[in-house]
């Protein structure tokens, strides 16, 4: 049947896709690896506009920590780190887009929680950043600890874990608070900056970046408390184990590379001359890992070569050459941090 020259099925499909974010129309994605290879492009979900994570550079190209994770996966799967398309994500639309299968992987900093992992049609992969939420206040309030904030007003954003964390923290300590919840971080930050709220709250690594954006960064301090545990992990659609393995082990390879001193600069030398059997396996000189995962034998080599190891990515965007944040818990376990990769064995 036709309506104004459109097949009625298409008209219906289009309108319903708009209605329900594609849930009703997406077809079963049995083999995402094949689909990505066929399309020749990797669709990544990121939230642009956060310096250090995903932010346009001078040439207008999106760069940052989140983008580099996406580039690493594209390099491993497609052999070219530039074959990515970043899709703008916004909570909670990100979850719907995942369910509908319109993006292959979300590398934005989403906290791995039970509620998100179970029964929502998506899977978390591995923790890439260990973060926790903290408070920023004005210095002149003279507040030294989060426990002194009884009765204060909070500016925060909706859709994140923030709301329930703050509420839990205050319930635990038997205190009261007020909150103004905004649709996006930009407005929440602006309202705090203008004095609407006493406290601004978000992930601590985010707070550092946000403080720099205040009218007078020096007027604000970040309180010592970390009120929550926020393990940040990329997400993939639920149900395709092969695809999940690819993402997990590509991310693992970045951490392993740092542990074994493989960098984007010395990687070729390492591959040709290293006698360490472990390094030889990771870089595909020996072993059949690449074939088992459905990619060429040098998939991990390509990923590390394109974006560098975890430490390099960190320093480029969040550390020395970026926001200047200390790595804290995000050091390797060998340096007293929490970062560890299962072995390539």
């Amino acid at each position: 049947m036709n309506i104004f020259g459109f097949k009625i099925k298409h008209v219906l499909t289009a309108s319903l896709a708009v209605l329900s974010f594609g849930i009703v129309t997406s077809n079963a994605q049995a083999d995402r690896l094949a689909d990505v290879k066929k399309a020749g492009i990797l669709h990544c979900g990121v939230v642009p506009g956060v310096p250090g994570y995903a932010f346009p550079n001078k040439e207008g190209k999106m760069v940052g920590f989140d983008v580099d994770l996406c580039r690493a996966i594209a390099a491993a799967v497609l052999g070219d780190a530039n074959k990515i398309r970043t899709t703008k994500m916004k909570l909670p639309v990100a979850f719907n887009a995942m369910k509908a299968g319109t993006v292959d992987v979300v590398t934005h900093r989403f906290t791995w929680t039970f509620g998100r992992d179970v029964g929502q049609g998506l899977d978390f992969t591995r923790v890439m950043v260990f973060d926790g939420q903290g408070f920023m206040v004005r210095k002149k309030l003279g507040v030294k600890s989060g426990k002194e904030l009884n009765g204060a007003t909070f500016c925060l954003t909706t859709g994140a874990t923030t709301e329930s964390n703050v509420s839990d923290f205050f319930r635990t300590h038997g205190m009261k608070f007020k909150q103004v919840t905004f649709g996006s971080m930009g407005e929440a930050q602006k309202a705090y900056d203008q004095g609407r709220c006493d406290v601004f709250v978000t992930d601590k690594f985010g707070l550092g970046a946000r403080r720099l954006a205040m009218t007078n960064p020096g007027d604000h301090i970040i309180l010592p408390e970390t009120i929550s545990n926020e393990p940040i992990s990329p997400m993939v659609p639920h149900g395709d184990q092969v695809w999940r393995d690819i993402v997990v082990w590509t991310l693992n390879s970045l951490i392993t590379a740092e542990e074994y001193g493989i960098t984007s600069k010395n990687i070729d030398k390492m591959r040709s001359s290293s006698t360490n059997p472990f390094i030889q396996r990771v870089l595909g000189k020996t072993g059949k890992f690449g074939g088992k995962i459905g990619l060429g034998k040098d998939w991990a080599y390509r990923a590390i070569k394109a974006v560098g190891n975890y430490g390099e990515i960190w320093e480029n965007h969040l550390g020395k050459h970026g926001l200047g944040m200390p790595r804290g818990k995000n050091e390797l376990y060998t340096n007293g941090g929490l970062l560890i990769s299962p072995p390539f064995r």
């Binding site: 909570l91 909670p92 929502q120 859709g159 994140a160 649709g183």
Partner: peptide, 14 residues
């Protein structure tokens, strides 16, 4: 605000 924000992201029952 409530339906599209907090409730949606906490429950996922879109």
């Amino acid at each position: 605000w409530a339906l599209s924000g907090a409730i949606s992201s906490q429950t996922g029952q879109v």
